[in-house]
Amino acid sequence: MPRDPGRRRTSAPKGSGWRGRLRRLVLGAVLVAVLVPAVGLVAFRWLPVPITPLMLVRLAQGEGLDRDWIPLDDMPPALLRSVIASEDARFCQHAGFDWREIRNAWDNWRTEGRLRGASTISMQTARSVFLWPGRDPVRKGLEVLLTVPLEALWPKRRILEVYLNVAEWGPGVYGAGAAARHHFGRPVASLGPAEAARLTAILPAPRSWSAAAPGSHVRQRAGTIQARARSVPLGEANTPCPGS
């Protein structure tokens, strides 16, 4: 049959079809991935963090959610000293990354084939507030990227305050306030150096170790932390990194 010269071929609009939908979906995901952390970095500079990805994962797994937001001023100096001494001894000197620890971890991997952690409190805060749990390379890369603006926008005092309020301290237990109640049945402000060191000692494995009934490994770690914590300086009103 001869072709009707009056009929014109029409083509689908550019960007329609499954490729267009996929492109828009990917673009939307990228925008969300960029905007959500950007807004959070600004908002959480002053506002309490309402919930973290890890908390949501644990809730989905059937665990509870026990937490209180405790201002840094209401936390005992012994806990601040213990956490800095144990988790990030050069917290006050670095700008997010402790290159000395990173080099040590790299040398340890080359000589012993075992990679140990070199995350700072700043890196752990960025990871806890914005990222999912796990050890995959993508998450580690995002952790590094988020640490840079975190250190630029938040003072050290705020970084430590947020970390102490979102850290996991047991199954369904988050933050120092809930941790003190869970392990010792007391408010966090009443903890002394020994109890603060025991709480800090279980941070690497809070779902397996107990501060209330510590085993020999936790007791040894706590003793080391308590000794090191004595040399961590604090300014007025529990201000870490005095003079910064």
Score class of each variant (00 low, 15 high):
Gly235Ala: 13
Val32Pro: 02
Arg181Glu: 15
Val188Gln: 01
Pro193Tyr: 00
Arg181Gly: 14
Arg81Asp: 10
Arg81Trp: 04
Pro76Met: 14
Arg81Cys: 05
Glu143Ile: 12
Val162Tyr: 05
His183Met: 08
Phe130Gly: 09
Gly175Asn: 09
Val138Gly: 10
Ala229Val: 08
Lys156Gln: 08
His182Ala: 10
Glu63Lys: 01
Arg207Trp: 00
Glu168Ile: 05
Gly64Val: 06
Asn165Asp: 07
Val218Arg: 03
Ile51His: 12
Trp106Cys: 01
Ala105Cys: 03
Gln124Pro: 14
Val148Cys: 10
Gly117Ile: 08
Trp154Cys: 09
Glu63His: 11
Val36Arg: 00
Arg21Lys: 00
Pro133Tyr: 11
Asn165Glu: 13
Asp74Asn: 09
Lys14Asp: 12
Pro13Tyr: 00
Pro48Thr: 04
Trp46Pro: 01
Ala43Glu: 04
Leu131Ala: 14
Leu54Pro: 08
Asp88Gln: 10
Val162Arg: 04
Leu153His: 08
Gly134Met: 13
Gln61Thr: 00
Lys140Ala: 10
Ser82Gly: 02
Trp109Cys: 01
Leu35Asn: 03
Asn165Ala: 08
Leu79Ser: 00
Leu146Gly: 07
Val138Ser: 07
Ala222Asn: 01
Leu35Arg: 07
Ala78Cys: 06
Arg100Met: 14
Gln124Leu: 15
Arg116Phe: 15
Leu41Gln: 09
Val162Leu: 03
Arg58Ala: 00
Val232Pro: 13
Ala189His: 09
Ala43Trp: 04
Leu72Pro: 00
Ala105Met: 06
Leu41Cys: 05
Val32Trp: 09
Val232Gly: 04
Gln226Ala: 14
Ala167Asp: 04
Arg135Lys: 15
Gly17Asn: 05
Ala126Arg: 09
Met1Cys: 11
Thr125Asn: 04
Pro50Cys: 04
Thr224Met: 02
Ala85Gly: 15
Ala196Thr: 00
